[in-house]
Design a protein around this nucleic acid. Structure first.
Length: 218
DNA sequence: GCGACAG
DNA sequence: ATCTTGTCGC
């Protein structure tokens, strides 16, 4: 468990497959959130996808999958740890979402292939990276406004890889980036639309709530 | 060599 | 991620 070269190679091929243009359906009816919870005692994890109606944000479908933890947590290879359970959960859904908002980064990643991008390419659906913490890239913290909707580009090597977006007044910003098949502006629009009362989007909160309920009872 | 480092 | 009490504010 110390030679990750094969995984870096996979990321290198995936980086070329990312679609940065908007490829959402004309009408986005369903959006989804994904999250995973762990039980280190049993070395098991539960991944879940929760689908919400894009307008009302009511939960319309959800699915979870429990399995063994097979990959350690390594910043930069995070997706390889969570994706197996999320793929399984996704396949069991009755309602396929038009857009998936992930709890982690998209292309705002050292090699351009974070969780949201990796999942988007494997599932071939539009995805957005929406992380609570910065992984790479920089922005002028002191210049970022404090109002909901205020944002600054997250830059790396002179390129914009994402955005530090304030989803509520006076809270720490969220880090939004393209996952797959969406552009950054559209991604920020959807994240803001999904953030009604909390810093985190309702999609992420719904998935987080589900996996934590399940992990507690097993 | 010294930090930084999604969940 | 997960482990955990109180506390400040709307």
């Amino acid at each position: 468990m110390d030679d990750y070269s094969t995984y870096y190679a996979i990321q290198k091929t995936y980086k070329e497959k990312v679609i940065r243009q908007n490829q959402l359906p004309a009408t986005v009816q369903y959006i989804a959130g994904a999250d995973v919870a762990y039980d280190d005692r049993t070395q098991r994890m539960i991944g879940a996808i929760v689908v919400l109606d894009a307008d009302s944000l009511d939960v319309v479908d959800e699915s979870a999958h429990e399995m063994e933890i097979t990959f350690p947590y390594v910043p930069g290879l995070f997706s390889f740890r969570e994706i197996p359970s999320l793929i399984q959960a996704f396949e069991q859904l009755k309602i396929r979402p038009d857009l998936l908002i992930c709890d982690g980064h998209g292309i705002a990643h050292p090699r351009g292939v974070g969780m949201a991008t990796h999942l988007g390419i494997e599932l071939d659906i539009p995805t957005i990276g929406c992380a609570k913490k910065r992984l790479t890239g920089a922005y002028d913290k002191a210049t970022l406004g404090n109002e909901r909707g205020d944002w600054l580009p997250l830059e790396l090597d002179g390129a914009t890889i994402g955005a530090a977006l304030r989803t509520r007044k006076d809270v720490k910003p969220m880090f939004v980036s393209i996952g797959h098949k969406v552009d950054l502006d559209t991604a920020m629009d959807w994240v803001l639309k999904a953030c009604t009362e909390y810093r985190l989007p309702e999609t992420t909160r719904a998935a987080d709530g589900l996996v934590n309920r399940l992990i507690t009872n097993y």
